[in-house]
């Protein structure tokens, strides 16, 4: 009771990275609160999955295993979660901000009237005093996220409703095996009692799941372009530089919205979060919604015509100039010096 539950996404018998990242974070929060960390796995043929979940700190693994539960569908998963949460009363519930978690968590929060904060970039335990009523709250979950297009950072709390629910994007939290693994004790969820007939009304007719080909997240060097690159044509220069440096090409939301680059390349609050060894920001002004996804890069080089661009405040090297001139020179002098 009153533990932390992480909803774990499972595709083809494999736990999604985002779920393992949430378990890592959940372990830290559970240690702070002195409660248990529990994983919830809903799917089919789940035997053995508890071993992986225990490695990342899960003390308990709730398992709802049935043929109708995979692939993921909103309504049956939602009913099972709401049924279990009503009985177990977790204080915190975490979901990946993936196409599954962002479909599921809002529906769960609406059913339980519990409140949900989307796309958190940080989760911290802290106290709160309500200034109006004077009520003091201990050990709330601070759900921290950029808002209003990233111009502000908001700390959201759910003082009076449980569970406190949050979604977090893949790559935002670190994935790390727990120092002491959890017990991974299996508790079978008698899920059929939670399902309604209408829960199976939506049917999956066809499904083509591809492994991601563009891998911005895994790259150690990223050449990233913003709206300032100007065109899809100009983006080719970034691919040339990336080719020479062995890098992957990323993009800001503005560049993706303008059609300069594919959505899979988007870095920032609404894209992927990256921590490369080197991040080369080309024509990126540096709005917080972008920097939230890259400010943990070990080194940042910015190329911008505006010497006062916000990106320069977090850059290690700021090159003031037109990227159409700078990038070819970088290619030239890299080749000249690298032999």
């Amino acid at each position: 009771m009153n533990n932390i539950i992480v909803y774990c996404e499972i595709e083809n018998g494999k736990v999604a990275d985002v779920s393992l990242e949430l378990l890592t974070k959940g372990r830290e929060l559970a240690d702070t609160l002195g409660c248990k960390l529990e994983a919830l796995a809903i799917g089919y043929n789940l035997q053995g999955i508890e071993k992986e979940l225990a490695k990342y700190g899960a003390d308990t693994v709730w398992m709802a295993d049935g043929e109708e539960l995979a692939p993921y569908r909103t309504l049956p998963h939602c009913s099972i979660i709401c049924g279990l949460f009503t009985e177990e009363k977790p204080q915190i519930a975490l979901f990946g901000a993936s196409s599954v978690g962002r479909d599921l968590a809002p529906r769960v929060s609406s059913t339980l009237h519990s409140g949900l904060t989307a796309d958190c970039t940080s989760l911290v335990i802290g106290d709160h005093k309500d200034n109006k009523s004077g009520t003091e709250y201990k050990n709330l979950l601070y759900q921290i996220r950029p808002a209003f297009g990233g111009n502000i950072i908001a700390t959201i709390i759910n003082p009076d409703h449980r569970p406190q629910m949050a979604t977090v994007r893949e790559g935002v939290m670190k994935k790390e095996e727990a120092k002491t693994p959890g017990k991974g004790e299996i508790k079978v969820v008698d899920y059929k009692k939670y399902l309604k007939d209408t829960d199976l009304a939506v049917k999956i007719i066809d499904r083509q799941i591809e492994e991601r080909k563009i891998n911005v997240k895994g790259a150690s060097i990223i050449v990233s372009g913003g709206y300032g690159v100007g065109s899809k044509e100009n983006f080719k220069l970034l691919y040339e530089l990336a080719e020479v440096l062995g890098a992957e090409v990323g993009a800001s939301r503005a560049a993706v919205d303008a059609g300069f680059a594919e959505h899979e390349r988007q870095i920032g609050q609404t894209g992927v979060t990256v921590r490369p060894k080197l991040y080369i920001a080309c024509g990126i002004s540096g709005q917080i919604q972008h920097t939230a996804g890259m400010d943990q890069s070990s080194m940042v080089i910015s190329i911008n015509t505006d010497p006062n661009a916000p990106i320069n405040k977090i850059a290690d090297y700021a090159i003031t100039g037109d990227l159409l001139e700078v990038i070819p020179k970088m290619i030239k002098y890299y080749k000249a010096n690298s032999k």
Binding site: S109, H113, S114, G115, L116, T117, H128, Y142, Q143, P146, G150, N151, I152, I153, A154, T155, I156, I157, N158, P159, D160, H161, G286, I288, T291, S302, P310, N312, K313, I314, A315, D316, Y317, A318
Partner: peptide, 18 residues
Amino acid sequence: PTKVKTIENVVFQAKEAK
């Protein structure tokens, strides 16, 4: 159910760029 506890306007931490 969700309440905004604090709002922080974004100010970048100053760091000297070369």
